[in-house]
Design a binder for these strands. Sequence first.
DNA 1: GTATCAATTCCAATATATTGGAATTGTCGG
DNA 2: CCGACAATTCCAATATATTGGAATTGATAC
Lengths: 270, 270
Amino acid sequence: MTSDNVTELGASRRMRGLDRAFEMLAYLRERGGPARPNEIAIGIGAPKSTAYELVNALLATGVLEYADGDGRVFLGRKLYFLGLAYQEHFDLTRECKAYLRDLATETRETAQLCMLDGNKYTVAMMHEGARPFRISADVGEPIPLPWTASGRLLLSHMSDAEILDFIPSEDFVLPDGSTLATEVFLAETERARQEGVFSFDSLADTFTHCFAAPVSQDGTTCVATLCLISPREDAVRNFDTYREALKSAARDLSGKLGDNAIALTKSGIA
Amino acid sequence: MTSDNVTELGASRRMRGLDRAFEMLAYLRERGGPARPNEIAIGIGAPKSTAYELVNALLATGVLEYADGDGRVFLGRKLYFLGLAYQEHFDLTRECKAYLRDLATETRETAQLCMLDGNKYTVAMMHEGARPFRISADVGEPIPLPWTASGRLLLSHMSDAEILDFIPSEDFVLPDGSTLATEVFLAETERARQEGVFSFDSLADTFTHCFAAPVSQDGTTCVATLCLISPREDAVRNFDTYREALKSAARDLSGKLGDNAIALTKSGIA
DNA sequence: GTATCAATTCCAATATATTGGAATTGTCGG
DNA sequence: CCGACAATTCCAATATATTGGAATTGATAC
């Protein structure tokens, strides 16, 4: 069975336990809840014996934890603490809290810090505005880049070819089923690159407008975006104010990062 | 060389990559900042070739990231997202935010949620009070259990023998260099178990008093504590109020945990 | 320039982790 | 109680990850 456990190409033979292990963790994250070893095995297309073996190893170290009386497991406390340490160290996540708060109070809209997660977009931090309304994306949930305003900014350090290579082609299919032409996306990216901000009516719902501005390291690489999510009427009324507030916050934040020139990152690869 | 890379006993032969990898991550967390592969190797007593090999593997998956232009690496974004997912799922960390806020505003003191991290105590979440003063422990930093009020509660589901077996004997040496008699610790634990709360003057500084109350799952196992850190004068003045506020918050929170009948609607599509 | 020491890469050996498949246990419906 | 099916454990084979040590590169001091 499962003759197709391949991820990219020729991932046939044996697979390294370390990588399998992190695939399992990613699977649990995506799933958002506990699973049995067997389900995990099926979920990631791994041999069952391997899954059991690894789950046990990870349970022993506290990376996974039993989630209920039954054999289900989920991400463990150890991962939480590792995540905390990341946050504690990484300037961006530390510094941005104040900016998110300020943006949210100043505009009364919801402010977010967004980043790449592999080749997807994700909300890393969020500060709800005065009247929090149902946002389409939860913190931590991976979303195709073309669906988002930030998607026009997060890859701005790449060439057109690199961008198209980076984004899975199926991600250009929008939530409504239509397909976004790559030329359009690239053109929007170019415009965003020049203006240092991008905004459009959300593709995920019918009533919000999304603003995004790049947070860059060394003035070159865009490592994250600051975003505002607002009702469309508000967006029209305060268009320039919001854009400027966002741009200025993003510029300030970029300044705070400066020195520790992070060389990121050829992520993506499997 | 490094004849002493043993961790417990007879950890001589080869070691599993998966475990080594998480040792490396733990090392980086403890260190709080980036390190070179070589430093990591020395830090955890691993062969250098192994360290390089594993660091590369982890870099490839984004679990580690380059931290500066130089070859230093640190915990990566992927770990942050995994930590988020843990938080998102785990009732305790979700629910407690409101309680911490309420406790902090009600008492004007600093409120914390504390948990076990391996065989140590650690602050998982914190809400600063009205006049935040320098707290001894940072969020995420592991502390010997006997140093803390929570230490009297977090192990209350264990027998005396199990407790002594669980806590490393060197942890009974207090910050001031004196040694806490195990009988005293066990007696305090027993008292805490009966009263459902424990408090004492902090051992880590000379001016704070620490209150702790147990958050339990299924009424049996103490999975965390809610804590208040207050100046000693305040603690004396409001002793009963604080104790009761804490007990009631902890009881409420425990109630919310009960039967997490795991409604794992796998909502979002990718 | 050269000597010294640390950091990193390379490589072959072999201990062992991964895996397929069989055996066992558990669950559910009748 | 008995199938039928899913979940889990067991086990031996073998592909490969781990490791010691040598070779290389890089930094620092003189």
